[in-house]
């Protein structure tokens, strides 16, 4: 899936996160994460973000995540929403979102 425009998803409320995706043609994937629980869960958050991007076939772009203590399920949902918005995709394979 190709990110063709800047897009946001989520909020900065507690237990949520804000995800911003931007296009980056051919420059690879850059994931930047900040979190209130970075020390304890930073590696796990990054893994969930990267796994989610990988399942969607995102290989290029800048993904900035500002986490406020969200569960993994919210992280997956917000990353997917931002990517689908940024890729301007309306129909997709649901199994890639599981």
């Amino acid at each position: 899936m190709k990110i063709v425009k800047e897009a946001l998803a989520g909020t900065l409320e507690s237990s949520d996160l804000l995800v911003k995706v931007s296009p980056a043609a051919g420059d690879g994937l850059d994931v930047v994460i900040s979190s209130e629980v970075m020390q304890q869960f930073g590696a796990q958050i990054e893994q969930v973000v990267r796994d989610t991007l990988n399942a969607l076939g995102v290989t290029d772009g800048l993904v900035v995540v500002e986490d406020k203590g969200a569960l993994d399920c919210a992280i997956r949902a917000r990353v997917q929403t931002a990517v689908l918005r940024g890729a301007e995709v309306q129909t997709f394979n649901w199994s890639a979102l599981s």
Binding site: C73, A74, R78
Partner: peptide
């Protein structure tokens, strides 16, 4: 609507 749909999709699987 799109964001809520995905949040609920994942919450249901918790």
């Amino acid at each position: 609507k799109d964001a809520a749909r995905l949040l609920v999709f994942h919450a249901l699987r918790l």
